[in-house]
């Protein structure tokens, strides 16, 4: 990509006490992309995000937001950033609108008109004038995003934004994040511990485990490599021996599992059918995050 990065993280480390929480991680994010930050609980996602947004000081390493170093040019860097770290916590005794006004007052470049825009954008409607204490988690999440978008940031960081939402809410959130990246040309960084979620909304993903990034790649490439096809066929022995001639096969109870190869999969199916094998079921399957880690790290377990 030729654009300059919206966020550039270089060799970030954090040591708390004697414990190395983040062990030197680097990655770049570009405008218009949704970047997944994937790792199991306790991997260091939130700690990394806290360092990026300036809440905690890195033990070493630099963070550039839109090319501006957050240590030396805090104000300028923060103008380009909107974030929700962990839960969307706002003042429960103020209304949604008053919360937005509160944060708008902290940046004189935000005009009043922008408040109406963000309320529209997150579709809060009349509830914006109710006290935040009466909001559901979904509403608070939206208000949190409205707040984050107030300053017209180029970079939006959301820490596990779908945590605790119901399936409809998760879906809405996903579509909204895609919308922000595609239509508003924002760069969105989303952390998650669910591979399925990252798969559905991200362009690229960094996988973090125990404070180190073990892989940064496009979601497409990662899936192409990791996605499997599960077969259920009768008779199983015949199907297995036929498939073994063209690819690797593992057996798991009544299922056969092969790699997912988009260009070949149709051929394999035709081959089985012409040989008289009845294909009863055929579906793609993502490896569980645990399996993915096993493969990527070569047998290292998640604690």
């Amino acid at each position: 990509m030729s654009q300059s990065p919206a966020l550039s993280v270089k060799n970030l480390r954090k040591t708390i006490g004697k414990k190395d929480i983040i062990k030197g991680i680097s990655f770049d994010l570009y405008p218009g992309e949704v970047f997944g930050f994937l790792g199991p609980n306790g991997a260091g996602k939130t700690t990394t995000i806290r360092m990026i947004v300036g809440l905690i000081k890195p033990s070493s390493g630099t963070v550039l937001i839109g090319g501006k170093n957050i240590q030396t040019h805090f104000g300028d860097a923060m103008k380009d950033l909107g974030c929700i770290v962990e839960n969307p916590e706002l003042y429960p005794y103020l209304t949604g609108w008053e919360n937005l006004e509160h944060f708008a007052r902290m940046d004189s470049s935000i005009p009043l008109k922008r408040l109406y825009e963000v309320v529209d954008l997150v579709d809060m409607g009349n509830r914006i004038h109710d006290r935040v204490g009466t909001y559901s988690l979904g509403m608070r999440q939206r208000l949190g995003i409205a707040q984050a978008l107030l300053g017209n940031p180029k970079l939006l960081i959301l820490d596990e934004p779908t945590n605790g939402l119901d399936p409809a809410g998760i879906r809405e959130m996903r579509e909204f994040i895609r919308f922000l990246a595609e239509k508003e040309k924002l760069c969105v960084m989303v952390s998650s511990h669910l591979l399925s979620e990252i798969q559905l909304m991200c362009d690229r993903v960094a996988i973090i485990s125990k404070g180190s990034i073990i892989r940064v790649d496009s979601v497409h490439a990662l899936l192409a490599e990791q996605e499997r096809v599960v077969w259920k066929a009768e008779p199983q022995e015949k199907a297995e021996s036929l498939l073994r001639e063209v690819t690797n096969v593992t057996r798991s109870e009544e299922f056969l599992i092969t790699l997912y190869d988009e260009s070949q999969i149709g051929n394999w199916n035709r081959m089985l059918v012409t040989a008289g094998v009845e294909v009863k079921e055929m579906r793609t399957k993502l490896p569980a995050l645990e399996d993915l880690f096993l493969e990527l790290t070569g047998g290292e377990h998640i604690e």
Binding site: G54, L55, F74, G75, D76, A77, E89, L90, F103, D107
Partner: peptide, 13 residues
Amino acid sequence: GGTIKLLLTRPVK
């Protein structure tokens, strides 16, 4: 209340 995270990530020292 966790609101400190919002206060301190605005462009104000």
